Simulated scan of single mutants.
Amino acid sequence: MQQFAARHPVLLALFSGTPVGLIVLLASWRTINTIGDFFFVLATCVAVYFAFGLTAYGERVRQQRLQRLGIWHPPEK
């Protein structure tokens, strides 16, 4: 899973952020009264996507650093 996260940070952000975004949307559905409330929920979902994507990108950087230092070698497929 760590290699998938490192190789595909955008896909990981979409696959893991979408359920969280849907939960946030469903939890706040009754409190959305204005367009500003909707944009707040949308901004929360985008923040979740960025958090997952940046974490996956950090995993990529960590794996590249460990490979460069010779500490870790990716397993063969």
Rank of each mutant, 00 (worst) to 15 (best):
F15G: 08
F15R: 07
F15S: 09
S16N: 12
S16M: 15
G17N: 04
G17I: 04
T18D: 03
T18I: 15
T18R: 02
T18W: 12
T18A: 14
T18L: 15
P19A: 06
P19T: 04
V20N: 00
V20K: 04
V20A: 11
V20P: 00
G21R: 01
L22N: 07
L22D: 05
I23M: 12
I23C: 05
I23H: 06
I23Y: 12
I23N: 04
I23K: 08
I23F: 11
I23L: 15
I23E: 07
L25V: 04
L26Q: 10
L26V: 09
L26R: 11
A27G: 08
A27Y: 03
A27F: 06
S28R: 14
S28A: 12
S28H: 11
S28M: 11
W29Y: 09
W29M: 08
W29Q: 08
W29C: 03
R30V: 00
R30Q: 10
R30E: 06
T31C: 01
T31D: 11
I32G: 02
I32D: 01
I32R: 04
N33I: 05
N33F: 06
N33S: 14
T34R: 08
T34K: 02
T34H: 05
I35C: 02
I35A: 14
I35R: 11
I35W: 14
G36T: 09
G36D: 14
G36P: 00
G36W: 15
D37Q: 02
D37P: 02
D37H: 12
D37V: 03
D37A: 02
F38W: 11
F38G: 09
F38N: 01
F38M: 13
F39K: 07
F39Q: 10
F40L: 15
F40I: 14
F40C: 04
F40K: 10
F40N: 09
F40Y: 09
F40E: 10
V41Q: 05
V41G: 02
L42M: 12
L42I: 06
L42W: 12
A43N: 11
A43R: 08
A43Q: 08
A43C: 09
T44I: 13
T44H: 02
T44R: 09
T44A: 15
T44L: 14
C45H: 07
C45Y: 07
C45L: 07
C45M: 15
C45T: 13
V46Q: 07
V46L: 15
V46R: 05
V46A: 14
V46I: 15
V46N: 03
V46S: 10
A47R: 06
A47F: 10
V48H: 01
V48D: 01
V48S: 06
V48C: 08
Y49K: 01
Y49M: 13
F50N: 05
F50V: 15
F50Q: 10
F50P: 00
F50E: 06
F50W: 13
A51D: 03
A51P: 00
A51E: 03
A51W: 05
A51H: 03
